[in-house]
């Protein structure tokens, strides 16, 4: 059963399908905004299949094992997050004390693997990308931790199941001033976690030509795409779970309502991505450690005094 949860539903397979569809949605909306037709719904799947058919090349300076291991580790870890998140949302009691910390760490693993993979390729452009990715990770983690702690403190428990239960009893955390602020902060952090504009600094196609994934090709690149796809589905669900009352599977309307929340969050992410230019890494750091952390602290203080 656990293996099924992990591999099929709500883990690897389901999360991949949902994530790639979400990615397509994002691409389609972006295309419509730019007066283009946009890709058909199966485009992201076709991309992955096409990558499977392509040859994998390894640059001469690259470390083979690390280079190939990084992408699939990223997929395995992100699928684990997706599976755990799905199971907890279906059955609140399955969580345990401290699981939110596990989520925080597991969500960082795909980034770590991007960094290690980029570093293992031995290419200077990928090295610059790796350096940027780790700096970006550092910058968004500070406000992200603060708002997570705010939610933990509000619910008075370190377990995600407990946070959902609290929201069932007291209404979602989002429906308060501090909740709104915290949600905004977390949403921007998710944008950076996904590496979307304005935070696509590590990949920066136009200047680094892909940065961390510069040297990746074929199935290895496909695995990184899959991992990003899974995160595209997982991170919004994580936001909904922590701040917006979780997904209530119980009655029929619950699922519809959950899908609405999900689409709204994706729409916000797409909106941010289409209305902002890419930042420089030092600007991003200053933004996250300055303005956004300040906002997070304000949210934290507001929640401490109960607003």
């Amino acid at each position: 059963m656990l293996v099924f949860n992990y591999l099929v539903f709500p883990g690897l397979l389901f999360a991949t399908v949902a994530g790639l569809l979400t990615w397509w949605f994002d691409r389609k909306v972006t295309a419509r905004v730019q007066y283009r037709v946009g890709p058909p719904w199966y485009q992201c799947f076709a991309d992955v299949v096409k990558l499977l058919g392509k040859e994998v090349v390894l640059p001469e300076n690259a470390r083979r094992t690390g280079f190939l291991l990084a992408p699939i580790t990223a997929v395995a870890a992100s699928a684990l997050v997706a599976a755990m998140l799905g199971v907890y949302n279906m059955n609140y009691g399955t969580g345990f004390v401290g699981d939110i910390i596990v989520f925080w760490y597991l969500l960082a693993i795909p980034s770590i693997m991007l960094i290690l993979g980029g570093a293992a390729s031995g290419n200077p452009l990928a090295s610059v990308g790796s350096a940027r990715e780790i700096k970006l990770l550092l910058s968004y983690e500070l406000p992200f931790i603060i708002v997570l702690t705010m939610a933990i403190l509000k619910a008075g428990t370190l377990s995600l199941g407990g946070i959902i239960e609290y929201q069932v009893g007291h209404g979602p955390i989002l429906y308060s001033l501090s909740g709104v602020l915290g949600f905004i902060v977390a949403l921007i952090c998710v944008q950076a976690k996904l590496g979307l504009v304005p935070f696509d600094i590590p990949e920066a196609e136009t200047e680094l030509g892909g940065g961390v994934i510069y040297d990746y090709s074929g199935a290895a690149l496909g695995a990184f795409k899959l991992s990003k796809g899974i995160l595209f589905y997982t991170l919004p669900i994580f936001l909904i779970t922590v701040f917006w009352g979780g997904i209530k599977i119980g009655d029929g309307w619950g699922i519809l309502w959950a899908v609405l929340k999900y689409v709204l969050i994706i729409a916000l992410i797409t909106l941010i991505r289409n209305t902002n230019p890419r930042l420089r890494i030092d600007q991003a750091m200053r933004f996250f450690w300055g303005k956004l952390t300040l906002l997070a602290i304000i949210a934290f203080i507001l929640s401490a005094i109960g607003i």
């Binding site: 580790t73 870890a77 699928a79 290895a220």
Partner: peptide
């Protein structure tokens, strides 16, 4: 579970001749 995930990844790589 992560090891199972890696095994799936290896199958993926086999498909892609990686």
């Amino acid at each position: 579970l992560i090891i199972i995930g890696l095994a799936v990844g290896i199958i993926f790589y086999l498909l892609g001749r990686a």
